[in-house]
Protein backbone atom coordinates (compact mmCIF):
# COMPACT_ATOMS: atom_id res chain seq x y z
CA UNK A 1 0.00 0.00 0.00
CA UNK A 2 1.30 3.43 -0.92
CA UNK A 3 1.93 5.62 2.11
CA UNK A 4 1.54 9.34 1.47
CA UNK A 5 1.93 12.40 3.66
CA UNK A 6 -0.03 15.58 2.96
CA UNK A 7 1.64 18.55 4.61
CA UNK A 8 0.82 22.23 5.14
CA UNK A 9 4.00 24.27 5.57
CA UNK A 10 4.17 27.88 6.71
CA UNK A 11 1.43 29.89 8.36
CA UNK A 12 -1.25 29.30 5.73
CA UNK A 13 -4.58 28.07 7.13
CA UNK A 14 -6.33 27.26 3.84
CA UNK A 15 -6.68 23.53 4.33
CA UNK A 16 -9.73 22.68 2.22
CA UNK A 17 -7.63 21.49 -0.73
CA UNK A 18 -5.21 19.55 1.44
CA UNK A 19 -8.04 17.74 3.19
CA UNK A 20 -9.94 16.99 -0.02
CA UNK A 21 -6.84 15.56 -1.68
CA UNK A 22 -5.99 13.57 1.46
CA UNK A 23 -9.46 12.00 1.52
CA UNK A 24 -9.40 11.29 -2.21
CA UNK A 25 -6.05 9.51 -1.94
CA UNK A 26 -7.35 7.51 1.01
CA UNK A 27 -10.41 6.54 -1.03
CA UNK A 28 -8.03 5.55 -3.83
CA UNK A 29 -6.57 2.94 -1.49
CA UNK A 30 -3.56 4.73 -0.06
CA UNK A 31 -2.53 5.19 3.54
CA UNK A 32 -2.66 8.93 4.16
CA UNK A 33 -1.12 10.98 6.95
CA UNK A 34 -2.24 14.61 7.15
CA UNK A 35 0.03 16.87 9.22
CA UNK A 36 -2.44 19.66 9.95
CA UNK A 37 -1.61 23.32 9.36
CA UNK A 38 1.39 25.47 10.35
CA UNK A 39 4.20 22.96 10.05
CA UNK A 40 7.79 24.11 9.60
CA UNK A 41 9.85 22.52 6.78
CA UNK A 42 11.94 20.82 9.49
CA UNK A 43 8.88 19.27 11.14
CA UNK A 44 7.51 18.06 7.81
CA UNK A 45 10.72 16.42 6.65
CA UNK A 46 11.33 14.84 10.05
CA UNK A 47 7.90 13.24 10.19
CA UNK A 48 7.99 12.19 6.51
CA UNK A 49 11.27 10.37 7.15
CA UNK A 50 10.16 8.96 10.52
CA UNK A 51 6.90 7.70 9.06
CA UNK A 52 8.80 6.30 6.08
CA UNK A 53 6.24 7.59 3.57
CA UNK A 54 6.56 6.82 -0.13
CA UNK A 55 5.63 10.29 -1.32
CA UNK A 56 5.10 13.78 0.11
CA UNK A 57 2.34 16.18 -0.98
CA UNK A 58 2.66 19.85 -0.03
CA UNK A 59 -0.27 22.26 -0.06
CA UNK A 60 0.35 25.99 0.03
CA UNK A 61 -1.80 28.98 -0.93
CA UNK A 62 -0.15 31.87 0.90
CA UNK A 63 2.50 32.70 -1.71
CA UNK A 64 5.37 31.49 0.46
CA UNK A 65 6.03 28.48 -1.79
CA UNK A 66 9.32 29.69 -3.30
CA UNK A 67 10.85 29.93 0.16
CA UNK A 68 9.34 26.90 1.83
CA UNK A 69 9.34 24.24 -0.87
CA UNK A 70 13.02 24.52 -1.87
CA UNK A 71 13.83 24.31 1.83
CA UNK A 72 11.83 21.09 2.17
CA UNK A 73 13.60 19.65 -0.90
CA UNK A 74 17.02 20.55 0.55
CA UNK A 75 16.20 19.04 3.92
CA UNK A 76 15.00 15.82 2.28
CA UNK A 77 18.23 15.63 0.32
CA UNK A 78 20.31 16.21 3.43
CA UNK A 79 18.52 13.28 5.07
CA UNK A 80 19.40 11.11 2.09
CA UNK A 81 15.76 10.75 1.05
CA UNK A 82 14.72 10.70 -2.59
CA UNK A 83 10.96 10.45 -1.98
CA UNK A 84 8.97 12.18 -4.71
CA UNK A 85 7.30 15.47 -3.81
CA UNK A 86 4.15 16.94 -5.37
CA UNK A 87 2.63 20.35 -4.73
CA UNK A 88 -0.87 21.85 -4.80
CA UNK A 89 -2.15 25.39 -4.34
CA UNK A 90 -2.08 28.82 -5.93
CA UNK A 91 1.29 28.59 -7.66
CA UNK A 92 1.93 30.96 -10.60
CA UNK A 93 3.01 29.11 -13.74
CA UNK A 94 6.57 30.34 -13.82
CA UNK A 95 7.08 29.37 -10.18
CA UNK A 96 5.63 25.93 -10.95
CA UNK A 97 8.24 25.50 -13.68
CA UNK A 98 11.03 26.53 -11.33
CA UNK A 99 9.80 24.08 -8.69
CA UNK A 100 9.70 21.27 -11.22
CA UNK A 101 13.25 22.10 -12.26
CA UNK A 102 14.21 21.74 -8.60
CA UNK A 103 12.79 18.24 -8.55
CA UNK A 104 9.08 18.60 -7.70
CA UNK A 105 7.20 15.83 -9.57
CA UNK A 106 4.09 17.89 -10.35
CA UNK A 107 2.31 21.10 -9.36
CA UNK A 108 -1.51 21.03 -9.23
CA UNK A 109 -3.56 24.21 -9.42
CA UNK A 110 -7.24 24.90 -8.71
CA UNK A 111 -9.56 22.59 -10.66
CA UNK A 112 -7.15 19.64 -10.86
CA UNK A 113 -9.26 16.46 -10.60
CA UNK A 114 -8.36 14.31 -7.59
CA UNK A 115 -8.71 11.16 -9.70
CA UNK A 116 -5.88 12.42 -11.89
CA UNK A 117 -3.77 13.28 -8.83
CA UNK A 118 -4.30 9.78 -7.43
CA UNK A 119 -3.26 8.12 -10.68
CA UNK A 120 -0.16 10.25 -11.03
CA UNK A 121 0.83 9.75 -7.40
CA UNK A 122 0.82 6.00 -8.01
CA UNK A 123 3.02 6.54 -11.04
CA UNK A 124 5.47 8.79 -9.22
CA UNK A 125 5.88 6.19 -6.48
CA UNK A 126 6.40 3.36 -9.01
CA UNK A 127 9.04 5.40 -10.85
CA UNK A 128 10.89 6.34 -7.68
CA UNK A 129 11.13 2.73 -6.48
CA UNK A 130 12.52 1.35 -9.74
Amino acid sequence: MIKVMIAKPGLDGHDRGAKVVARALRDAGMEVIYTGIRQTPEQIVQSAVDEDVDILGISILSGAHMKLIPRILDLLKSKGSNMPVFVGGIIPKEDAEKLKALGVAEVYGPGAPTSEIAEQVKRFVEHSST
Binding site: G10, L11, D12, T40, S62, G63, A64, H65, M66, K67, L68, R71
Partner: peptide
Protein backbone atom coordinates in the same frame (compact mmCIF):
# COMPACT_ATOMS: atom_id res chain seq x y z
CA UNK B 1 10.85 35.41 13.56
CA UNK B 2 11.82 32.07 11.91
CA UNK B 3 8.08 31.22 11.60
CA UNK B 4 7.68 34.17 9.24
CA UNK B 5 9.99 32.72 6.57
CA UNK B 6 8.53 33.31 3.14
CA UNK B 7 5.28 34.81 4.45
CA UNK B 8 6.23 38.47 4.92
CA UNK B 9 3.99 40.80 2.94
CA UNK B 10 2.46 37.91 0.98
CA UNK B 11 -1.28 37.74 1.74
Amino acid sequence: DPHSLGEIGKV
